[in-house]
Nucleic acid binder design. Structure first.
Lengths: 339, 339
DNA sequence: TGTTAGCACTCTCGGTCGTCGAGTGCTAAT
DNA sequence: ATTAGCACTCGACGACCGAGAGTGCTAACA
């Protein structure tokens, strides 16, 4: 009675070769291919025996009896876990991406998503954690032509929001600055919610327009609303069309429609503690993504809050490259957004 | 010897019915369909005769002998020209879209693109004309936590650009305002290019940081570069997958790749004088878009400069609805961006 | 003269069938 | 333990065929 075959070094090499080849070609890998391209001193028959063992062990699967083998979720996992052990090399290309001007949280987030998607050629997702308790640090009116002014609110975490409001034509730059000073003095240190509540009482402040107050109220309520929800951005969503597993339009559409619903997207990203997570196929928990993998890296932003950057692509994916790209972008984000 | 059949009222009704049906179903329309759904008092045989005439006239085409008829480019054009005659009804839904906060040109443009794509369910493109000779109107530094400041530049056309720069920790709000005033005084009225050139000379200004100067130089050069090129944004690009004519992934990808190249996109939009333009199929001049139509509306922004809003979709398109949506959004844009 | 019923004809679509080839598993030889 | 050889399996692909949709034409009819 034979026991379960053990997985030795050679089996591992072969498994690795199969994964690599499959990642490249997206076609089931046959024994001949391995024997010629990877293990040139072994015959196809030997490889066949090994492959048969690997299948018994659960690392390979055959779409049908006379096709080659395809790596199973277990195989990817083995491979990925191994990658996760070693430190992930930082990708220089990724860091360069952020030399551009960055404006505020949202801008950073979206350019991160674009950067990742361009580097990896997959779909990228970036999540910014919700920030409760944003406090106003400064508030300023910048004169604009034709009776307008730009109202800028800066919070203690460095988030910036602005909007154009109408003001009296006879307020010049200095007058606006005086108003700004006064408002900053009274409102700084308050949370956005407090600011909102306090504004009612101010509507008759000397020298200030009711319209200014209104503008601030609007802006404060918007910031408050936005800061209370997680923000999530997608980049390069149609990169998915580059991969043959999505040459079925229905599949592609299902995929894209998941991306359009923030809540379903959150499901893919959230709920992990470690720096890197890889969910393969069914592990994603979203049926439409059954043959996708989701790779995420977390980055720190300020006091213990964590955001995620991630890549969604076919299960066959060069996990090594993806991980290093994510790690680089995550690092850059931490630098930019962290305290 | 029979002459060319004339196009009478009934032929026109039938043609219209065929277009309507084809727009809905994307399937060649047969004579029976028309006789049952649209012209219930005529038999299919009669319709057949009429259709045969319409084909001879060039308004219909048959994909193959035993399929129904499909409207030709000429048919659409007839129909569209008729639409263009009458005034295009404004679409209420579109106007609502802009009640949101709008920040600056680019924001307006992108939300316009999104609005159009959501309303029409097609791909939307919005172009903002290049603005030469932008002049600085105001320039202000807003204090931020941790030795940063937000540098805001406002131009005479109301374009806003900002960036975060580092400044000496010991500059407080008033000091920053003093610098802002001084800079505004010296730089306002200058074009961005002039500002850029002048900044070299200022690097030793009393009380101001070299870093501030540097920040302004950066920002000015970016604004200058951006204002010299046309800006174009795409919204809802993957709406295209909703239409059966793009159930071929290769086609869809070709379509999307055109959208990714700004220059090819410009080709689709530019070069028209009238308020509305409809280019059908080959008229677009871009081979990948051979079975698309491009509908554009122009909007005025300030002194004679024109921008375009457009929709790209399959040639069978409810042109009436699309035109009214575009007209509404175009109007809103003129209001928001015009002088 | 315009409309309609009838009919033969054409062409696509969907399914079935048979061939081809890639790949396997097993056995026997090395 | 490895490998050559061979029979076998199964999907991909092209050929083929029948059904159905739609046409054009003709002849009858109002």
């Amino acid at each position: 009675m034979e026991g379960m075959p053990a997985i030795d070094a050679r089996k591992e090499r072969i498994l690795r070769a199969i994964i690599d080849d499959y990642v490249q070609t997206a076609m089931p890998v046959g024994s001949r291919t391995i024997s010629r391209k990877y293990e040139t001193n072994l015959s196809s028959a030997t490889i066949r025996n090994e492959m048969s063992d690997l299948e018994e062990l659960g690392y390979l699967a055959q779409p049908h009896v006379s096709a080659g083998r395809v790596p199973s979720v277990m195989a990817y996992r083995l491979y990925v876990d191994e990658l996760l052990e070693g430190s992930v090399r930082q990708d220089a290309q990724a860091r360069e991406y952020f030399s551009q001007r960055v404006r505020q949280m949202e801008d950073v987030i979206t350019s991160a998503a674009q950067a990742i998607s361009e580097i990896t050629r997959y779909t990228a997702v970036v999540m910014m954690p919700k920030q409760l308790e944003l406090r106003v640090s400064c508030l300023q009116l910048v004169p604009m032509p034709r009776g307008s002014a730009l109202l800028v609110i800066v919070t203690d975490t460095g988030a910036i929001r602005d909007t154009v409001i109408k003001v009296s034509e006879n307020l010049d730059g200095d007058a606006l600055y005086a108003i700004s000073r006064m408002l900053t003095e009274r409102l700084s240190g308050r949370t956005l919610q407090e600011v909102q509540e306090m504004l009612g009482a101010y509507s008759r402040l000397a020298g200030s327009d009711a319209r200014v107050i209104e503008g601030i109220a609007d802006l404060a309520s918007q910031m408050e609303k936005q800061s209370a929800t997680d923000t999530v951005t997608v980049g390069g969503s149609h990169n998915i069309l580059n991969y043959p597993e999505y040459s079925d339009v229905e599949k592609a559409r299902a995929f894209l429609s998941v991306l359009e619903h923030k809540d379903r997207l959150m499901q893919l990203l959230s709920g992990t503690d470690s720096a890197f997570t890889v969910r393969i196929g069914p592990e994603t928990g979203v049926p439409e993504m059954a043959d996708c993998s989701v790779v995420t890296a977390s980055y720190r932003v300020g006091a213990g809050h964590k955001g995620f950057v991630g890549v969604i692509g076919p299960t066959r994916m060069p996990y090594g490259k993806v991980l290093s790209a994510l790690s680089a972008v995550g690092g850059a984000l931490s630098d930019l957004l962290g305290e």
